[in-house]
Design a protein around this nucleic acid. Structure first.
Length: 304
DNA sequence: TATCCAAGGTAAGTT
DNA sequence: AACTTACCTTGGATA
């Protein structure tokens, strides 16, 4: 096991581990204390978070266990390998959050959301796990989406040992493609089971790869992802925002739709594409997805 | 204790 | 292209 730390002061802008990991962007982390999504306040506290990072081209070549916790001014990590570049990548520690906050519109709602969660960052999840996570997200509660990913890992994922503990990597496209719809329904995935199976088959068979969307212009990338079964415009936006490095998508989920109706009614203009474009402009364009994530987390936790 | 409802939507069928 | 409808499951609310 290797270990080390990352100093928050050396980043461009603040960082808060809890809000970053528990804000419904990523469903690939666990809290061994079992307090995920319980709103137990560990702001700047010391709860451990752990994940097994799937291979990311240029960052890890094989599954790596990563555990991390935040002390007030630093991140303490333990891993099967050097985790600095991994954490920098998947938690976007290389974003200049100060510059992003300055670039965001000084709208009252946006300001309240940013003030409430200082240091919250976008995540950059591995592509296939992110794609499956958000296929699972349809008509589901955040805590259950998380539970589904854990079931998938523990049932079909490769075991990885660290320090006498067993962790499970996210299943590969091949391992999910080899399951039947009935087997997957056994994990309480409901009508998402065939979507997940068929999408995994498309990736495993080389028919399409979600990572290929990363090099396309934003709206073309969204269109590309909708070829996967169970992926519509909203899920496609989530994958572009939380995995593929785009910062401008504003996924139009129920919370953002409500926000549009209540606070930005003139942005509600028909089709998904048009409304999306309109609210994206209102949220400042380039970093509109960052704004969406703050507003989503703020509203979901009772803000107004 | 039983019933009802809604949860980060999408696919397939109609008009 | 825009508009309906069915879809699995379950935790939490309501009676």
């Amino acid at each position: 096991m290797e270990c080390g730390e990352i100093l928050i002061d050396e980043l461009a802008g603040d960082f808060d581990l809890q809000s970053t990991v528990e804000s419904g962007q990523s469903y690939l982390w666990d809290r061994p204390d079992g307090q995920m999504y319980t709103e137990s306040d560990v702001h700047g506290g010391t709860a451990w978070y752990e994940t097994v990072v799937s291979p990311i081209h240029g960052v890890t070549e094989e599954p790596a266990v990563v555990r991390v916790r935040q002390h007030h001014d630093r991140l303490e990590w333990e891993s099967t390998t050097d985790a600095v570049s991994i954490l920098t990548h998947i938690l976007r520690l290389d974003d200049d959050l100060d510059a992003i906050e300055r670039a965001v519109p000084a709208d009252p709602m946006i300001t309240r959301a940013f003030d409430r969660y200082p240091g919250m960052r976008l995540v950059r999840d591995p592509a296939f796990p992110s794609l499956i996570s958000f296929i699972c997200s349809a008509q589901m509660r955040v805590s259950r989406i998380h539970g589904m990913q854990r079931s998938l890992r523990e049932t079909y994922g490769m075991a990885v040992e660290m320090d006498g503990q067993t962790y499970y990597a996210y299943p590969t496209p091949e391992s999910i493609a080899a399951r039947t719809e009935a087997e997957l329904r056994g994990l309480s995935l409901g009508y998402r089971a065939p979507y997940i199976q068929r999408t995994a088959e498309m990736v495993a068979g080389g028919e399409a790869d979600p990572r290929d969307a990363a090099s396309l212009p934003y709206e073309d990338a969204r269109e590309y992802l909708t070829q996967f079964v169970g992926v519509g415009e909203k899920v496609a936006d989530c994958v572009l925002l939380f995995s593929l490095g785009f910062t401008e998508p504003v996924p139009l989920d129920t919370w953002i739709q409500t926000a549009i109706a209540d606070y930005y009614p003139d942005c509600a203009c028909g089709s998904y594409a048009e409304t999306s474009r309109s609210i994206r402009d209102r949220f400042g364009g380039k970093y509109a997805g960052y704004v969406q994530t703050y507003v989503f987390h703020h509203l979901r936790n009772g803000g107004e």
